[in-house]
């Protein structure tokens, strides 16, 4: 496959697979059950350094990126999702978004090489930011989606991170630690400050 053909192929995949990911469970039968889900570590870390706040520090960014990879590795399509009151409908997790995201990261590298002559991870933060901004400007989502619903890998990573207790604590500069096991009596107290605040 020539470089141009490969580029065209990846661009097609990068736009087509997320569309499958956003579809229903039936689509996932052909969408990504057996497809590789691991994202290129170096490019993903560079993406994390681009879209996540510096205030996290390099350790926090690495934790977020590793957590996202772990999340993706544990993803299972076509699993029944929570159903509750007010509906008789059953729904299922969508196709694995990993293959589409992996292709998007490859496209980032191709674009970076084409425009700047280097891999995405080797670009300056300004260059990387400009590339991601251009991509997200085409996305409709104002709010961060659940990661599995994210059409773009940057939104997937952000969508994953903002749901973590670490992100909530960073925003509020307080040790809220949502969704974690904590003493009941302490809920009456104002959450204490985080170590860095």
């Amino acid at each position: 496959m020539s470089a141009l053909d490969r580029r065209r192929f990846l661009k097609t995949v990068a736009t087509a697979v997320p569309a499958v990911a956003a579809g229903n469970a039936a689509a996932c039968a052909t969408g990504g059950i057996s497809a590789p889900a691991h994202l290129d570590d170096r490019t993903l870390l560079a993406l994390g350094e681009t879209v996540l706040p510096d205030e996290l520090g390099s350790g926090g960014i690495q934790r977020a990126v590793r957590g996202f990879q772990t999340w993706l590795a544990g993803y299972r399509p076509a699993v029944e999702v929570t159903h509750g009151y007010g509906t008789g409908n059953l729904d299922y997790t969508p196709a694995n978004p990993g293959p589409g995201w992996a292709a998007q990261l490859e496209v980032l590298n191709l674009e970076a090489e084409e425009r700047f002559g280097a891999a995405f991870a080797a670009l300056s933060k300004e260059q990387r930011t400009e590339m991601i901004r251009r991509q997200l400007a085409r996305e409709r989502a104002d709010r961060l989606p659940d990661p599995a619903q994210a059409r773009n890998v940057a939104l997937g990573l952000l969508g994953y991170w903002v749901q973590t207790p670490e992100a909530v604590n960073l925003c509020y500069q307080a040790r809220i630690d949502p969704l974690t096991c904590r003493p009941l009596a302490a809920q009456a107290e104002k959450p204490g400050p985080t170590s860095g605040s």
């Binding site: 681009t50 879209v51 996540l52 706040p53 510096d54 205030e55 930011t129 991601i132 901004r133 997200l136 400007a137 996305e139 989502a141 104002d142 709010r143 961060l144 939104l155 952000l158 903002v162 992100a167 960073l170 925003c171």
Partner: peptide
């Protein structure tokens, strides 16, 4: 009060801007 990737003016928010 949720995080978002685009502000009211339509600007994409990343990193420290998002925070």
């Amino acid at each position: 009060g949720e995080p978002r990737v685009r502000d009211d003016a339509g600007n994409v928010l990343l990193g420290k801007e998002l925070l």
